[in-house]
Every structure is written in structure tokens, then in C-alpha cells.
Design a protein around this nucleic acid. Structure first.
Lengths: 217, 217, 217, 217
DNA sequence: GATGAATGAGGATTCATTCAT
DNA sequence: TATGAATGAATCCTCATTCAT
């Protein structure tokens, strides 16, 4: 209502404070979602974990779902920031084993540090509800996978590509579950290696020039 | 008041009625678990779906978990009855592609007819709680898979075998999710074929002395 | 509808059977009332304890209260039968200490064998409901006490007599509680003796013109 | 943001509101316990009586028992505060009749104003359960009584003293029931007088070397 | 009569969400 | 903004009572 300079700091601080609160709440939510699963998590539990009152929580999120959605979105952004470069043009030219290293390793690392991510995807347990929003996340990841596949096997029809991407993603999610369940260390590393082996064996025949004789039954 | 046969009908009828109720309740539970997921399913919702009062439900099951456990147990039995013969000695001598047909097809079929099965396994969402009982189901299936793998690749160490079985099972669960999500028909069939392809490519190099040339598509 | 003689046996048997059932149910009820208290006792628990179905219970009693009422009534009758002669004219002429022996001892004995009796009186916890019927029991006992007091101290006004009878009865109930709580044996005997001491000291001054030197301990 | 005093009101108000709610709930509980007895009282009924939602009740008490325990504890404190001085050393030197006045009168008055107190003690109906906590209350009172008795009759053995204290307390509880049942006024006063008479006659012979001529009526 | 399945209202308790302060 | 008290609908589960067999 008056000058610019004296007023800016306040909004900024407010925003900053708000951001801190939101981060705090999302972090608490992540923790509780991991422990109890999405459905079994109460907003009060999130607020408690965040050392904040329930009222405060509802000042930043209209409901429980919104928390999950925002959390998923942020994780996706983080993930892209953290290893979005995995899909650089140069990487796409790598031979499959190297590409898998370049793509899978940071993805695994990210998920080990943010196990909510998987929890949220499994939170899609209930079709229709939160799923809608979570699917954005899901779809976004699928698109990346489809991109790689399209590059490796440009001759595929759209349906084939889509199916292979779905399957690849499903394998990855399943393998990721095993990886997270394994105790960090040698066992986990071995599980990661096994996952890459699956993907390599599944995807390598796609490589162009391959004499695609689908093995007879 | 003398012979045996004329007295039996009464208990039988009672038992029959009880069994019908239990079946009815389990069927309702299956339906609701599929729709809402295990955690989000209320016992009242199950009772409602079964057109029965909550009190009746509790005459047969002490709580929600018991319903899930019984349901899982019955499905497992049904599954074994329906395709337990898949793991017959003769089948184990089949070449991998045929073995996969023999094992995967009935498994898929069973799960298409009983989609709760997958829902129950995902109900293990929250580690540690209900999981304990659900894991019986899980473990039971894993054992079968390990058996096949042990037969195909007897030289593996126990850890390797275990890891491969876990991974195989994870892949199957993931693929099964895709299959169930696909509309029945050509699309679903293609998804099943794709799942078999993954498994074939992943597992065929295990066959001893195999010159692990991954088969091209 | 026909003759007398051929028909009587049946009703008799029925009545006999019915009586047995009722006795069985009342005995079960007594047991469960003692263990859990009246309010916390469920009719199903009574039926279970009686090895009878809930339906059967309701064939003999219209509701839970009726069970308590019938039980109380029967106990009262039993009690009267067992020691109703305590209040015979001769006994009333006994000196107070002897009278107390003659009245208190069988009463205590009866209650030790039928601890429900006290439970039912305390069941009057809730004023107004079951109380109404239980009060019959209560009133009946009070009348006896008033009789004795009237004999010992005929000069009292009705209010005084009533008050003293109430107090005497209250003391007895309180003491009975202690007696039942004491382990059978020396401790219980001592408690009974103490109760008689209270009553003796309280009531002996009532004897007209008595220059009572209360015995020192 | 600087001094202490301006910041305190907030927490205070909160605490004050909370304390008011708790008081309100306890008062409602007292009322309902008196009317229906402990066992038959539902938490919903307490909430309703307090004009509060069930959720609110559970914000302050984890369950029904906790309400009873808190209520009993507060009453005990109040009682001690209100007439704890009854057991002062000087009072112990009073002759028994005066001591009884000094001890019994405030106790009766307190119980007339807080009839739940008796209800809670009778709530121990079911042995073993809630009793445990209620017994603290019970034991606390018994200890006081034992103290007085020890002073009046130091020669008694521990068992005798304990038994006499139990009996005295039982008499008091029984008499208190009569007092509360009597309509306030002359009748109640007479009942109180009668109770004191019982106690006097019972306890006066305890006084050592006393050649007690029990007063005739 | 006897059975035990069935009922449904009610009790304890939780939780997403709102609101006064 | 932040708080945390308040709400009330919804859970899980029990129990007095009824009913078909």
C-alpha cells in the first residue's frame, strides 16, 4: 500500500517462512508415509511429526491428498534435477550396459534416499482417488523410458513401445522394492546388479540391427 | 434318535449355512479389497457388500485381518489345486519356454479371475503388521519359484538362487499388475506375452552350459 | 384335551426339564455375576457358561434383569429355608450374644456358599432399574431385622426402629463383604467374630434397662 | 517479544480452557457415574452430559477408566484439603466422641457434596480391573483410619489393627450409604448420629484400660 | 424345545477438518 | 499466522434380543 522497498522484505520473509513450513510438513509426511503407508497415515500424525499443530498443516494444504500430491511433485522435480541429465543425447548413444548404469544408478540412489517415492507409487493402490494425481508422476517417468526405447528401437510401433516401456517400468519398480528391502551394503549392491541384469537381458534384443527373430514358443 | 445318517443333516445344514456365509463374506471382502485396497477397507463396508449386518461378520471373523488371512489362505489353496500340477517333475524337464507357458498361463488366468490376490500382496504395503500373515502366502509362492530355479541352475549358491527367485517373483508381480490393468482381449494377451518374454530372457541364461547369447526379439 | 392320566407325565417331564434348565441357567448366571458383576455380565456369557444357546436362555427368561430377579428370589427362599428358623420365638428370647450366633452364623455360611447374593445387592448400584426388584429382597431381610429389634427394644418409635434396622443391615452387609474377601480359614473366622462384636456392641445397649458393661477386648 | 509477562497469558488461557474442560468433563462424569454406576456409564453419555463431543472427551482422557481415576484422585485431594486437618496431633488426644465428631462430620459433609465418591468405591464392584486404581483411594483412606486406631489402642497386633480398621471403614461406608439415601434434613442428621453411635460403641472399648460403660440410649 | 445364526443399535475410539483465539 | 481445542462422522466391535430351522 505504500513503497516498494520497505514492503518487499515482509512478503519474502513470509514466503520464506511458508516454504520452510511446507518443507517441514512434507518431510514429516514423507517419514510417516514410509512408516505407515499413505492410507494409514493421519494428518494429525504428520503435524505431530512436523512439530506443528494440525491447524497449521491445514493452512498450507487443503487435505491429506494434497500433501501426497505436492510431495510427489517435488520429489519428481528433485529427481529430474538430480539425474535428468541421464537422458542427454550423448548418453543415448552409449551401449545399453553403460546406459543402464547411467540411468539406473542415480535413480536407485535417489530412491534409497527418498523411499517415500516408492511408497507414493504403491499408494496408488487404490485406483481412482489419489491415483489421478500420482499418475502424473507415473506418466512423467514413463515418458522418459519411452524416449529411451524409441531411440534404441525406432522401428517399434507405438503400442509395442508403450508396452515395453510399461514393462520396463514395472520391472524397475519391482526391483526397486527388492533393493529398498535389502540391507544397504553388499546385499543391496547385488540386488541392484541383478536388476540391471534383468533389464539388460530384456532390452538388449531391442537394439537395432538385431535380427529380431522372436523366439518361437 | 438311533441311526447316524438321519442325524447328520442338521449339523451339515448348520455347517453349510455357516460355510455359505463365510464364502459370501470372503467374496464381498475380495470385492471391496480390490476396490479400495486392504487398508482403506472397513469391516462395515464388507458386511454391507455381503448384505449382512456387522454383527454377523464378527460371528465368523474376529477382525479385518482374519478376513484377509482366510481369504489369502483359500486363494492359495485354490491356486495350488488349480495349477499345482504345473510343477510336476515332467514339467520341470520341459525347455524353458514351454515351462513358462505351463507355469505362467494358469497363474495369470487365476489372478485374472481373482484379482484380490494381487491386492492382498500389495496390502503388505505397511511392512511388519498384517504382512506377517500375508508373507506366508508370499513365502509359499517364492518357495515354488526357488524350486524351479534350483532345478534349472543347480550350481547356484543359495543366495544367488534366493535373489533370482525374488527378482523373478517381483517381475511376475509387476507384470501381473500390467496384465490386470490391460483390458481383457488382445491387449491383455500381448501383455502376457511380453511378461513371458521378460522371464524367458532373464532366466534362459541360467540354463547350465548355456552359451548365454540372449535371444533376440 | 383328553384324559388326565396319560397326559400328565409329559408336562411333568417338560416341567422337570424346564426346571433343570432354569437351575442350570441360574447357576451359570450366579457364577458369571460373581466374576464380572451384574452390569458387565452379558446374556451370551451366561448362556455359554450354562452350555446352552442364547436362544434357549431367552426361552426361559425374557431378559437379563429377569435372570437376576429370579436368582435373587430363589436365593432368598433358600436362605429362608436354610435358616428361617433362626427367628423362632424361642431364639428371640436368647441373650443377644447367643442370638447373634444363631442369626449371623447361618447367614454368613449361606453367603459364603452363595456369594452372588452380595453381588446382587451391590448390583443395586444403579438405583431405579433392577433395584426395584432387588429391593423386594432387601426389604424382606430388613423386615426380619426389624422384628428382632422390635422384640429387643419394644419402646422404640417406628422411625428409630427402622433406622436401627437399616444400620444393622448396613453393618452386616459391610462386614459380609469383608468376610467374603477374607481367605476361608482363621482369617475369615476372625472377621466373622469381629462383625459379631460390632453388632453386639451396637445393639446390646438397646436392651431395655440394660446396664451393659461392654466386654473389653 | 521481549518481556515475560505479556507472553504468559496465552499459555495460561489455553491451560485455563483445558482445565475448565477437564473440570466440566469430570463433573459430568461424576453426575453420570452417580446416576448409572461406573460400569453402566458410557463415555458418550459423559460427553453428552458435558455438552461436548465425544472427540473432545478423548482429547483429555484416553478412556473411561482414566476419567474415574482422575476423578477419584481429585476428590481424594479435595477431601484431604478439606478435612485433612482432622487427624492433627491435637485431635488425636480428644476423647473418642469428640474425635468422631471431628473426623466423621466433615467426611460426611464432603460425601454429601460429592456423592460420586461412594459410587467410585462401589465401582470396585468387579474385583481386579479398575479396582487397582480405585484401591489406591481405598488404601489411602484405610491408612488414616489405621493411624487413629494405632493411637487409641497401641497394644493391638498389626492384624487386629488392620481388621478393626477394615471393619471401621466398612461400617463407615455402609453408614454413608444410608446417610446419602436419607433426605437431607432431620432424617439425614439422625442417620449421621446413628452412624457415630455405632462407631463409638464399636471403638470405645478399644481405649486401653477403659472401663467403658456404654451409654444407654 | 433347542439351536445358533442374524440383527442392529450402541459403545469406545479415531481422525479429517474447522474455528476461536 | 499459529495454535490446539472442538467437532462429528465413521471405525471397530459387542451384546441384548429375535428368528428360521
Amino acid at each position: 500500500m505504500s513503497e516498494d522497498t520497505p514492503e518487499e522484505p515482509k512478503p519474502r520473509r513470509r514466503q520464506a517462512r511458508g516454504e520452510r513450513r511446507i518443507a517441514q510438513l512434507l518431510s514429516a509426511a514423507a517419514s510417516v508415509f514410509c512408516t505407515n503407508g499413505y492410507t494409514a497415515t493421519s494428518t494429525n500424525a504428520i503435524a505431530r511429526e512436523a512439530h506443528v499443530s494440525p491447524g497449521t498443516l491445514y493452512q498450507y494444504f487443503p487435505n491429506k491428498e494434497a500433501i501426497a500430491v505436492e510431495l510427489g511433485g517435488r520429489l519428481l522435480d528433485e529427481m529430474r534435477a538430480a539425474h535428468g541429465q541421464a537422458f542427454t543425447p550423448e548418453n543415448l548413444t552409449l551401449p545399453l550396459p553403460e546406459l543402464l548404469d547411467v540411468v539406473v544408478d542415480p535413480m536407485i540412489e535417489f530412491n534409497c534416499e527418498n523411499p517415500v517415492f516408492l511408497a507414493l507409487m504403491h499408494g496408488s493402490e487404490v485406483p481412482g482417488r489419489i491415483a489421478e494425481e500420482h499418475d502424473a508422476l507415473h506418466a512423467s517417468l514413463l515418458t522418459s523410458v519411452q524416449g529411451v526405447i524409441a531411440h534404441y528401437a525406432p522401428a517399434l510401433t507405438a503400442e509395442e513401445r508403450s508396452r515395453i516401456a510399461d514393462m520396463t517400468f514395472a520391472i524397475f519398480k519391482g526391483g526397486l522394492g527388492l533393493v529398498l528391502a535389502a540391507p544397504a551394503g553388499a546385499e543391496r549392491d547385488a540386488t541392484v546388479a541383478e536388476l540391471k541384469r534383468v533389464l539388460l537381458r530384456y532390452l538388449s534384443p531391442l537394439a537395432e540391427g538385431s535380427v529380431t527373430t522372436t523366439p518361437t514358443r
